[in-house]
Design a protein around this nucleic acid. Structure first.
Lengths: 227, 227
DNA sequence: GTGATTATTTGACCGAAATCAACGAAGGCC
DNA sequence: GGCCTTCGTTGATTTCGGTCAAATAATCAC
């Protein structure tokens, strides 16, 4: 079911908009495009597993990929949801030789992949690439710290309120939008059991939030501050 | 109380052992040493606060520094404990212009600091430096993800057991050692209230762990697996 | 040492969220 | 359309860990 291919003209356009590639010098960029492979992977397909030898760097073009840990007892914990533009496997990129989490497509996902070996070689000669990698890592690191703080500090309704507020444009009112993925996954991302997410949504009714399926309407995003 | 100075010969020795500097080419290394400043900061002194303009990159030489978030209501959440060799403020290094957490010395701490401006300029010319930064970030990112997984997956006694096990040499028995910092801080690092840490220790007695002050004795590190 | 802080432990209590179980809703397939 | 599977909600119950308060141990300054 996988389609593997050289980037088409249209895809080159998309690729060049990626945070990883958009700031590169021309020759670095073309070297990266040279080793880029675009793939489409189907729902639930696994990109790699925790502990696998890390030989590939991925970057999401469209769709969502979840990273998770497997406990010794077989329980799964969601750690991150990678959105379009995000790197996957970057933490293994320069550090270990094994991926430290498993990655799975949530839906149909389009990604670019690069040989980690080649990326390392190129980055060792091209500071702009090394810095772009560092910038990507930096952003993900900051993100994971803020998730950790959120987990340790806020209750379930607060975390959900916080998430919803981030989705609303600054200072807007009566916003409505579609959740980008299943509630199941959203619950995992927020460190909650699905039941807890459900209860949190119903708790948030009183703050002007209504949910029908994946459609969410937020009456007054500012009011979510006080949850 | 602060001592600020050019690195002495002895300190240059220490500096060159840092993960950040140890793999650099000679000219990059000397450029970094050129802009390095060694400081000693006293207990509880604050290095920077969340939101401050990020203009300095730090690296711990000795002692421990804690990073924490401040909630709107004034509650503090510990996020990381930086050990000797760790970078501080690296996530701001290439990403934002503000620190995303506050940093405070836990005790008397010796650090090196570098002008972020200069580091950025140097890294833009020197791929080895850019890669060293990326490697440091990569390790911290992996660490924060594993903390997150630990938080979401394990109970308090399990987290403490896991921590203790990491401190014991592989396959050893009857290990005893001193906790590197106060229980207060250890509790924060593990995402626990001090009371919960205390209770966890007392729960672990039955697995052959005894604690007196900061002295810990672990009878059989392998047995901690089954907590 | 002695007193004054500051850490740590213990107990009682409470609230948040996980778990288990059962039910309702939605979407895919034929 | 109707069956079937997966997803989401709701209720009951339980467990974990946070909070408050008080007692005890350490540590520091003098």
């Amino acid at each position: 079911m996988n389609r593997i291919m050289r980037p088409s003209a249209w895809e080159r356009e998309t690729l060049m908009g990626l945070p990883l590639l958009s700031r590169l010098e021309l020759d670095t960029l073309s070297a990266m495009l040279e080793i880029a492979t675009v793939r489409t992977i189907g729902p639930r397909q696994v990109l790699f597993r925790e502990g696998d030898l890390a030989d590939t760097l991925y970057c999401v073009l469209s769709g969502y990929v979840r990273s998770f840990h497997l406990s010794p007892l077989g329980r799964e914990v969601d750690l991150l949801v990678h959105e379009p533009g995000d790197l996957i496997g970057a933490s293994a990129c320069l550090h270990g030789h094994a991926y430290c989490a498993s990655a799975q497509a949530t839906d149909s996902v389009k990604i670019v992949q690069f040989s980690l070996q080649r990326v390392r070689e190129l980055a060792a000669r091209k500071p702009d690439l090394a810095l772009a990698l560092a910038a990507g890592l930096s952003g993900q690191f900051a993100g994971s710290l803020s998730t950790l703080a959120d987990d340790r500090l806020h209750t379930a309704p607060q975390r959900v309120a916080h998430y919803l507020k981030k989705q609303c444009p600054q200072g807007s009112r009566n916003v409505s939008f579609r959740l980008p993925y299943q509630k199941n996954l959203l619950a995992g991302k927020l460190g909650l059991a699905p039941e807890a997410l459900s209860r949190a949504f119903s708790h948030l009714k009183r703050y002007g939030v209504s949910v029908r399926g994946r459609l969410v309407q937020v009456n007054d995003p500012e009011a979510l501050q006080s949850v």
